[in-house]
């Protein structure tokens, strides 16, 4: 279970998150929507431990562990995964090597045995097939020369490899055409399981046609202004965020 309580965070003394409360039970998919500048991506980065942000109040607890007390790489080992909106390139480091390093770091941190080369490659093949990732991409440098769709698919592949218990997708749909969107969504859907929770951050409703959420939250000015079922996303699609911004916030 992922539980965020009264979370406040700021950047350069400017408050961005102003008291977020959010609980995602195991197996649930929550969607976080909201207008530009409402703090959606900030929440994802704060959860992952980006040092540019300062948490001034509140807590983030994953499966009983306070993430705010952990360094970013320890949070990953604790089961948190974030799919980046803009995955960075790492020249000279192949995706295969990168993932092996990541996987073994996480396993070591979790007290599991490291995988040998043979075991690792068999996991790679299986998971790449799950998310329909071309194996050839894995021999290229991390995100190096990847198309927008390939980058996002590679993010989902990494998610599948690391077997997190909580996944945050930060605007994974941005810059994707409809085919790429569908493939990425399929990958996420195959990973849905009773012991894994998802927070899908998106500006648009269209992704939610493919990844159907259990709960939809709307973030406005660093606070959750409204929470509802999947039909809330459709309502927003129709009326826009202005409906909520005008002060019609109702707690579901």
């Amino acid at each position: 279970m992922l539980q965020i309580t009264n979370l406040h965070a700021s950047i350069d003394d400017t408050p961005i998150l102003r008291g977020i409360d959010l609980t995602i039970n195991d197996g649930e998919v929550h969607s976080l929507m909201g207008p530009n500048g409402s703090g959606k991506s900030t929440l994802a980065k704060v959860m992952a431990g980006d040092e540019a942000y300062e948490v001034t109040e509140g807590s983030i607890v994953l499966n009983g562990q306070d993430l705010l007390e952990l360094d970013p790489h320890e949070r990953a080992a604790a089961g948190l995964f974030m799919a980046f909106q803009y995955p960075v390139e790492i020249p000279g480091v192949t995706m295969k090597y990168f993932m092996r390093t990541a996987m073994n770091s996480v396993r070591k941190n979790r007290g599991q045995e490291e995988l040998d080369a043979y075991e690792y490659l068999s996991v790679v093949k299986e998971r790449a097939a799950t998310v329909k990732l071309d194996l050839e991409l894995l021999d290229r440098p991390v995100n190096g020369g990847f198309s927008g769709g390939e980058k996002k698919r590679a993010e989902i592949f990494q998610m599948a490899m690391l077997e997190p218990s909580a996944c945050v997708l930060d605007e994974t749909d941005s810059g994707l055409d409809i085919d790429a969107l569908r493939i990425v969504a399929e990958g996420v859907n195959t990973m849905r399981s009773p012991d894994r929770s998802f927070l899908v951050i998106t500006h648009y409703q269209r992704l939610l046609s493919y990844i159907v959420p259990d709960v939809v939250h709307v973030l406005v000015d660093g606070k959750i202004a409204r929470t509802g079922g999947k039909e809330l996303a459709l309502e927003l699609e129709e009326h826009g965020y202005s409906l909520i911004e005008k002060g019609n916030a109702v707690d579901a």
Partner: peptide, 17 residues
Amino acid sequence: FYCNQRGISPEDAVSMI
């Protein structure tokens, strides 16, 4: 940070890069 998020410590990330 990207490496960290995948579970790789800052030291390991630098040496890998």
